[in-house]
């Protein structure tokens, strides 16, 4: 079954605004320290090691996590809006399995027109 990954932010913003980006991943962050009471077997460690955020293909934010982060990790950070484009988020596991989530951010200037990353004249 596919695990839940969530990405939330304000969809339409003005130029120069700080956008709060909230992410959530469904994951049992197994610390590798827990032991079964009856059998005495130690559950092996399995955590999300790193989270990388990209804005228009450029790395904007990085997080390296260890076993101290809670289960179903929530993370919120900020980005300044310059031009409209893609926001991509990548979660990387202990087994190097990755999962992605992405969304489109629309940026508007003072006149109400969209600011595109590629500039052209007609």
């Amino acid at each position: 079954m596919e695990k839940l990954r969530r990405l939330k932010y304000k969809k339409i913003v003005k130029v120069g605004e700080n956008v709060k980006i909230k992410t959530l991943a469904e994951h049992e962050m197994e610390t590798g320290v827990r032991r079964d009471n009856i059998t005495g077997i130690i559950y092996p460690r399995l955590i999300i090691q790193s989270v990388i955020a990209k804005y228009n293909g450029k790395i904007v934010f990085k997080a390296n996590w260890f076993s101290g982060v809670s289960a179903n990790p929530y993370l919120a950070f900020y980005i300044t809006a310059k031009e409209s484009g893609l926001i991509e988020i990548e979660w990387k596991d202990d087994h190097a399995t990755t999962s992605y989530k992405r969304g489109y951010l629309k940026v508007i200037n003072e006149k109400g027109n969209e600011v595109l990353p590629v500039k052209y004249d007609l």
Partner: peptide, 10 residues
């Protein structure tokens, strides 16, 4: 690029 060095997590 991130205009506000603020992070929240658990």
């Amino acid at each position: 690029e991130n205009g506000n060095a603020e992070v929240s997590f658990r």
